[in-house]
Design a protein around this nucleic acid. Sequence first.
DNA 1: ATATAACTTGGAGTCAGCTCCAAGTCAATC
DNA 2: GATTGACTTGGAGCTGACTCCAAGTTATAT
Lengths: 141, 141
Amino acid sequence: MSELLALTIKETAEQTGISEDTIRYYEKIGLLPPAERKENKHRIYRPDDIATMKLIACLKKTGMSLEEMKPFLNLSYDDEIRNFPELFAMMQTHRSKIVNQIESLQEIVDFIDSKMQKQTEIEEPCTLKGENKLISAIKTK
Amino acid sequence: MSELLALTIKETAEQTGISEDTIRYYEKIGLLPPAERKENKHRIYRPDDIATMKLIACLKKTGMSLEEMKPFLNLSYDDEIRNFPELFAMMQTHRSKIVNQIESLQEIVDFIDSKMQKQTEIEEPCTLKGENKLISAIKTK
DNA sequence: ATATAACTTGGAGTCAGCTCCAAGTCAATC
DNA sequence: GATTGACTTGGAGCTGACTCCAAGTTATAT
C-alpha cells in the first residue's frame, strides 16, 4: 500500500499525535517543508519527517511558538552548524532560555512539594492508591 | 501618596511585569479576585496580590493556561490542602505534568548539546571569542 | 459504472490571551 | 474653574494556532 518507508498523512498523524489538518497547516505556514508527493498527489512522509514532527511536538510542549521553531528546525537537517556562528549563537540562546524554563518549573515543583510536605516526605509508600497510575505514567513516558 | 503597603495598578504592573490592561483582564476573567479599592474607586494591590501575580507569570512561562491556573491559585491562599483529597490529587497531577515538561526540556537541551558536541566538549576554552557573552549570560541569569 | 474511502485545496470560523480605544470620573495644580 | 494626569468602564480588534468545511480528485471494491 505505501511506498518504501513512506507514510500517508493519516499514518503520520497517528504516529506523531499531530492531526492531519495541523500537519497541512504547518506546511502552509512553512514550519514543515512542502511534503513529497506520490503520483496521485497525496503527501507522503519519511522517518526524518516524523522525527521533525515529534521534535515540533516536544518544543511546543515547552511553550515555544511556531515562529521561534522555524530556524531551530532548519538546523535539525543541517549538520554544518559549526560553520555558521550566528546559528551557533542562536542555539545557545535557545538553550539558555530552556535552562531558565527548567529552573522556573523546578521552582513550581518545589512550591508544590512545600505545600504537600506532610505527604511527599513519605517517598512513594504502599499506602498511595490512585496516585500510582500517575507515577507510572511519568516513568513510562 | 499610597496607603500602607498598597500599590497602584501602575506600580503593580511595573513590579510584576504584567501590563495594567492584562491585570484588569485577569480580574475580568476571574483569575484574580476583584481588587480592593481606594475611596476614589482606584484598584490597590497588596504584597499577597503581587505574589499571586508573580506566580501567574511563572506558571504562564511553563505553558499553563489561565483556566488551568484558577484552581491552582485558589490553593496558594489556602493552607488546608490536606483536608481536600481532590485538591491534593490535582496538585499531584500538575506536579507530574511539570516533571514531564522538565524531562522534555532536558531532551531538547541534550539535543542541542549533541549538535554542539565539537564546541561544548572543549569546556570553555580561551579560543572562544564572541560566544563567551552568551555563556556568561546563561550563568548569571 | 457506481459507490466508498482517502486524500486534495482554499478559505472561513473558533478560541485564548491579550491590547487598544473612547468616553467618563476624580483629585490636585495652575 | 480649567487643565492635567491617573485612573475607570465596556467593548472592539488583533494574533497565533488551530479546526472545520465544502467541493473536487483519484484509486479501489462491488
